[in-house]
Design a protein around this nucleic acid. Sequence first.
DNA 1: TAATTATGAATGAAAG
DNA 2: CTTTCATTCATAATTA
Lengths: 183, 183
Amino acid sequence: MDEGLEGFRVKSRGGGNRGGGGTKCGRWNPTTEQVKVLTDLFRAGLRTPTTDQIQKISSQLSFYGNIESKNVFYWFQNHKARERQKRRRVLVEDDEFNDYREFQRDEKISSARHFSEINQEMMETERVTETLQLFPLNPYWETEHEKLRYYANEYNKENHASFPCNFEAEMDHTTLDLRLSFL
Amino acid sequence: MDEGLEGFRVKSRGGGNRGGGGTKCGRWNPTTEQVKVLTDLFRAGLRTPTTDQIQKISSQLSFYGNIESKNVFYWFQNHKARERQKRRRVLVEDDEFNDYREFQRDEKISSARHFSEINQEMMETERVTETLQLFPLNPYWETEHEKLRYYANEYNKENHASFPCNFEAEMDHTTLDLRLSFL
DNA sequence: TAATTATGAATGAAAG
DNA sequence: CTTTCATTCATAATTA
């Protein structure tokens, strides 16, 4: 993790999860553009987008490759959780230093105690703006999407409309078929 | 050749956290059997079991491993919420898809198209029976639990349902305009 | 290509 | 009921 400032990781995810002929219906594999946008939004302070925001973001990101709203939802969920996790780990380390082991499940008291310099950066993003407005991003889209738009489509996936993913359609466990006759 | 066997996943849910080496009894880790029963009940229409029903269910499921009433309570609460959430998301995606296609008032769409399968599944579970009675369950338990009780410990296979791969895959990017005028 | 890591996905628990 | 948090599971990606 650690998306750094540049946000340019060589992930060889050239075309995302499409193409490649794989048609693998595995899990979502965000394109670098998608990750960048999501990261930007996160860094801008967005932590828990509303359903509506998720929809919009998802809709926009679909320009760069396949994506569903749930992907956006999970992305923020995970990103936030892992950042917090990291931060907490450092805290624990600090505590360990003092052999201090009180597990007080209150996290809001994070009144910036004695954080390591490393946490300095995190404290920055810690100032969350739950009700973040996204309009400041417009400029970005307006200026960037036009070119990326074509790069992203370079090779449109041919077969995507179908979704052969299993959908819990197998009630195996032969003998375990419950006789819920109460209906 | 032979793209690795898929379709089976082993959830370390084996011995579970119940009797025996209790060890880490953090949170309830349902056995496959327990999940199956709960799912069956849900699919049968049970959504918000009463305290009494929860008691009965919990009691019966205890044959397959440790379980408390609150686990059952939470399970239904979560399952219901997530099912709803999932449906909500898919519907939105559908809307987007429809918006894109923008059927020229062609009303004879009849029976959802591409995403019919999924919606169908959900429509099914949409038939709720809030006042479901559980007493007929006893017979089953009495006769089955003894043997299943043992089978449940070793053999664990679970196929999780996956979301549809993607809908808005083949959107016509050329006609879409970035309207990220969020909020 | 095996081992490790990063991260998408899921879910139990609980707060709101 | 809805939303959030934490932990865990699964697997694509990366590294050794």
